[in-house]
Design a protein around this nucleic acid. Structure first.
Lengths: 139, 139
DNA sequence: CTCTCTGCAAAGCATTTGCACATTG
DNA sequence: CAATGTGCAAATGCTTTGCAGAGAG
């Protein structure tokens, strides 16, 4: 099994690197903002017996280590994403699609605000909600 | 029953102004970022027979009209708030407390980003996550 | 060999919904 | 009085958890 830099994060932690966890990491590096269900489906193509419970347990560990970012919103399952490059999200209120945006200016301002309010360990992943161009234009 | 400017929003809509809905609006104008459970408890002090289902139905209507903002995050119930003055939130990753912040600069940048990406109906309520000063300082 | 991890299935919460009755406009 | 709203309780969807056996180091 080849060990990516992402796997290394797990190895350095107190957690074991199992084939299930490696498969979750692989699934995450393939796609963006995936639901647990989607990750489960992808992992199953290689490991048909993996349970959804294991997916959730793994994602929680990866989040605790800081390898994964989680996004929650009203009326749907949470989305998970490899925490490689920090970025923000545009969430369509109509079709629930997620799009990544890089905006350091936004991060800097947000970080300043939180710092001045006495916050530490600041996570600057912001979600801007709106109606995407596809949903706005007539069919 | 006195009719606040908030009630007016409901009256102008195609929805009826019932005593349950008025009570939910009153509860929302009292506190900030409340959970459905908390709103239910508050409404019950005046209307003991209101069901939780009605609270959810009402909150959904108010959100659809634009009178209420909803905030969701991993591992907890959604929080609801009267959409009077738009502002952002600081969420403590440890104790899950929410604090309001006004930052027009943040809103402006976020709106620009979304606009350039072709988004409309942009909602600039952002949530910055971090560890609040209470949770950071030793006990 | 020990300690951690996994699959399974059941439980847990937050939220939604179908239905018969009550209420609003 | 016609249309909408409500309480109740059951259903749903996402996520977590207890347990006994499997696997990593």
């Amino acid at each position: 099994m080849d060990r990516t830099s992402v796997d290394a994060g797990l190895l350095q932690s107190r957690y074991r690197l199992t084939k299930q966890r490696a498969a979750v990491l692989r699934a995450l590096s393939d796609g963006m903002h995936l639901s647990a269900e989607t990750i489960h489906a992808r992992v199953r193509t290689n490991l048909p017996d993996v349970s959804l419970g294991t997916i959730y347990r793994t994602l929680d560990i990866l989040r605790a280590i800081g390898l994964v970012q989680v996004f929650s919103f009203a009326g749907g399952a949470a989305r998970y994403e490899a925490a490689l490059a920090k970025h923000h999200h545009l969430l369509c209120s109509s079709c629930r699609s997620l799009v990544n945006v890089n905006a350091d200016g936004l991060s800097d301002i947000a970080r300043d605000i939180a710092t001045q309010a006495g916050y530490t360990d600041i996570d600057c992943a912001l979600t801007i909600t709106g109606r995407c161009s596809t949903c706005s234009s007539p069919p």
